[in-house]
């Protein structure tokens, strides 16, 4: 009895196609992060820097005034709140999304070349897709579309990526063979 049916379904190609397109979407977050009010707010940063500079020059000639200290602290807090509110999650979606997109391309290439039964290719392929969609994909939904609850699902993606990496590593030990 043979365990496996010969079917060519998700053999890695889907990860490569998905990875490249997904990369385009997550890479685009890069320039978006530079737009004021969308990513880190550069105006707020400049204001905070100016206020801190003022404190620094004042303290060179004695104690700085309470007023300048207050301005510096609120400036810094405003800036931090701002990046925390939008910039941080967005840059997380950008960084993890780029990484997981590339991971899908690489994993897809490896899966394509593996000499293992096709059901293994299917499950590996699915794990990397689920990994990207449920991890950085959910971060993307949170930061770009403001869908807050999606953030609760990210652990599914994390788990899928761990499982996919371990299994792909194991499958590579037996499944990467010399031609001939």
């Amino acid at each position: 009895m043979s365990f496996y049916k010969q079917e060519v379904f998700m053999n890695g190609k889907v990860n490569i196609v998905f990875g490249l397109l997904y990369f385009a979407a997550t890479a685009l977050l890069g320039p978006v992060l530079l737009v004021p009010g969308k990513g880190g707010n550069f105006q707020k940063m400049a204001e905070a820097t100016r206020a801190v500079e003022k404190v620094r020059t004042e303290s060179a000639g004695g104690a700085p005034s309470m007023e300048s200290l207050g301005e510096a602290v609120t400036g810094i807090m405003d800036y931090l709140k701002d990046i925390n509110r939008i910039g941080f999650v967005k840059s997380a979606a950008h960084a993890h999304g780029n990484l997981e997109a590339l991971l899908n391309v690489v994993a897809g290439l490896v899966i394509l070349t593996l000499v293992v039964p096709s059901s293994y290719k299917t499950v590996l392929s699915l794990l990397f897709l689920i990994g990207a969609v449920f991890h950085s994909g959910m971060l993307y939904l949170v930061s770009v579309f403001g869908i807050r609850w999606a953030g609760n699902l990210t652990f599914i993606g994390a788990v899928a990526i761990i499982a996919g990496l371990v299994l792909l590593g194991a499958a590579s030990i037996v499944g990467i063979r010399k031609a001939g």
């Binding site: 299917t122 794990l127 994390a158 788990v159």
Partner: peptide, 19 residues
């Protein structure tokens, strides 16, 4: 997390594995 990884693989295998 490690257990969940195994569980996820087994669950996918329920639909993609051999008979």
């Amino acid at each position: 997390y490690l257990f969940a990884a195994g569980l996820l693989v087994r669950t996918l295998w329920l639909f993609t594995g051999p008979e």
